[in-house]
């Protein structure tokens, strides 16, 4: 049975929603979303340092999404836009939750899961050391990234992130990442 993305989206899209989006993730979309959020965050009464942290996490999570979405093959992607992704920001009590969702090839799950677990388990100092090490030694990947997005977000939020992989079919799963600021 397919993982029900609509159901998952409506579940995310409840409570105090600041922004919710489901569809094609393009560079233009990211620019627009960031502009809207910039204005929205101005209106929210939050400490400037929290606002900055949140904005940084939004930038990295949107760009991670943009760089790492796997598109379903055309035969089964009918109901999804090209470069389909989900992006929802909600307020839960005193915290902000940034959720992203995208398709991922099943064979990529294991290495990603290992990275996520590793980053989650690291202390702030360990994250800082790893960040500097990668920054100083890694070249740009083909996708134009540096492999630092996840570490950066963990560093800023003290590792407050959760993830879930839900099998979609034999080849693809849906990857959900929640980051708490």
């Amino acid at each position: 049975m397919h993982f029900d993305i609509d159901q998952y989206y409506s579940r995310l899209n409840s409570g105090e929603v600041i922004l919710a989006y489901k569809g094609s993730i393009s560079s233009e979309l990211i620019t627009n979303v960031l502009e809207v959020l910039d204005a929205k965050l101005e209106d929210l009464v939050i400490e400037k340092s929290i606002k900055k942290k949140l904005y940084n996490v939004l930038v990295e999570s949107l760009q991670n999404l943009y760089h790492h979405i796997d598109d379903l093959p055309e035969t089964s992607s009918g109901k999804f836009d090209v470069h389909f992704g989900i992006f929802v920001i909600t307020k839960e009590g005193e915290r902000y939750k940034v959720s992203t969702g995208n398709f991922i090839k099943n064979n990529k799950i294991k290495p990603l899961q290992e990275r996520l677990d590793r980053v989650k388990s690291m202390s702030k100092d360990e994250l800082k050391t790893l960040y500097k090490q990668i920054l100083n030694n890694q070249d740009f990947t083909k996708k134009g990234g540096v492999g630092l997005g996840l570490i950066d977000m963990a560093k800023r939020t003290d590792g407050q992130l959760d993830y879930k992989f839900s099998e979609y079919n034999q080849e693809y799963s849906f990857f959900n990442l929640d980051i708490y600021v």
Binding site: K52, Y55, N56, V59, E60, Q63, L135, N136, Q138, F140, G144, G145, V146, L148, G149, D152
Partner: peptide, 12 residues
């Protein structure tokens, strides 16, 4: 004010 991880490499 803000920079992303992609820029952090270029700044380095």
């Amino acid at each position: 004010e803000y920079f992303n991880t992609s820029s952090s490499k270029c700044i380095l």
